[in-house]
Design a protein around this nucleic acid. Structure first.
Lengths: 227, 227
DNA sequence: CCTTTTATGCGTACCTCATACGCAAAACCT
DNA sequence: AGGTTTTGCGTATGAGGTACGCATAAAAGG
């Protein structure tokens, strides 16, 4: 038998409580004291199960997602498409995920499961091992980046619903000097940044699909040049 | 004439000092007190020129880069290639850039200049305004993500030069259950994560070029389907 | 059943940091 | 010179992470 007093909580409990706080009030509200209070424990009790707040954040990041999705039958494009959209959905559901500063490559079980899922989509292709990793990495960074953009826009939108949408295009018009930045000026003048529904679900989703399409198209071409 | 006491410093000075600290000791060392001390001023003096630390960070982010590069003659692929590599270099020179939490789309002059530069590379193409923006956004997120990965690896490497490289592959071998994650297990077994020079300049550059190639290839296909 | 051992719960204390507030110093105006 | 305005900055507050050490609980040994 194990000696000593029995633990009343474990790291998983703490992670859950921390995630609950982050879901409800954002990552900024996640302090050791707050999480402890949420569990009815004292602040310092947490440190028996978690080395530091950074470690807690890492645990949160790995626990933020559900299990990777079941990929559909079909070719690798369909599968990676579903995978990417599912990951985007996961991030949208827990926007605070993007604010966790990650240091080093992932070692969490969930993260690795997602990694595995994406790799499995490429099993039928003639890509080498290293190339598969490259493709998946690229896809992950793309989803990550696109999700960040979406979340940032939505947040600015919620802070000031009436103004924000038209505001950005307007501000750009003031800042951008057509002589110094002719290409940008043209785009701004075209009104690309003025659209009111720049932040609507549809539009963001369309942007995402467009970028995703580009990337997968590139992968297809690469595979094609080898098959 | 302007009334009142003459300012002895301005936001640009503060930004410069803050960047100097970040360059020398990392972003964590950048506190208001530290920056003020570096300039021979008192902490609270900074707040006359900078609303908050967050604003200072935003200023740092915009001032982190040099002017966008002169793009070579040639087609858009050459230009965007140079642009992307130059941006990667910029981030590598100031790794702390990646740790600055950005909120909202960029409005800084430098950032916009880079944006403009990338857009100008696409001037000859038949892409619509919105598509150009999409392409550039996608490219930015890709570079950003890839740079992050490189910096994370290099940092882990510097923290523990002897172990780290083989360590990661090893740890993965312990964690990854071939039954639960068959695809990942195969890749790990193939030794993709074991290479000692996984973090050498060459290898990282090769990974970057591979992903960049994929993305640009996708753009080319998209353009081709329209020209 | 009492003592020893070991691991947990957590109160206290310290340190770092961002920043609100108010006063003093400097530069301009009349 | 006296008034006005803007900057420089000392003080103070409050939040947050965490080192340290003791109290407490549970098992092991006698």
């Amino acid at each position: 038998m194990k000696r000593g007093r029995k633990p009343t909580i474990d790291a998983a409990d703490i992670t859950r409580a921390a995630i609950a706080v982050a879901d409800a009030e954002g990552l900024a509200a996640v302090s050791m004291a707050r999480v402890a209070q949420e569990m009815g424990n004292a602040t310092m009790a947490l440190y028996r199960h978690v080395k530091s707040k950074d470690e807690l954040l890492a645990l949160m990041a790995d626990a933020a997602f559900d299990e990777p999705p079941l990929l559909p039958d079909g070719d690798w494009r369909d599968k990676l498409g579903v995978w990417a959209r599912e990951m985007l959905g996961g991030i949208r559901r827990r926007p605070w995920f993007l604010q966790i500063p990650m240091s080093g490559p992932p070692t969490g079980l969930k993260s690795l499961a997602w990694f595995d899922s994406a790799l499995s989509a490429l099993e039928g292709t003639p890509l080498e091992a290293g190339e598969k990793v490259g493709v998946v990495m690229g896809l992950m960074t793309f989803v990550h980046g696109e999700a960040w953009l979406g979340v940032a826009l939505q947040q600015g939108f919620e802070d000031d619903p009436a103004q924000f949408s038209r505001q950005y295009g307007q501000r750009l018009r003031e800042i951008v000097d057509p002589r110094r930045m002719p290409a940008l000026a043209k785009i701004v003048a075209a009104g690309v940044f003025d659209v009111d529904d720049l932040f609507e679900e549809q539009d963001v989703a369309a942007d995402f699909d467009f970028g995703l399409h580009l990337f997968l198209e590139g992968v297809a071409t690469h595979i094609g040049g080898r098959a």
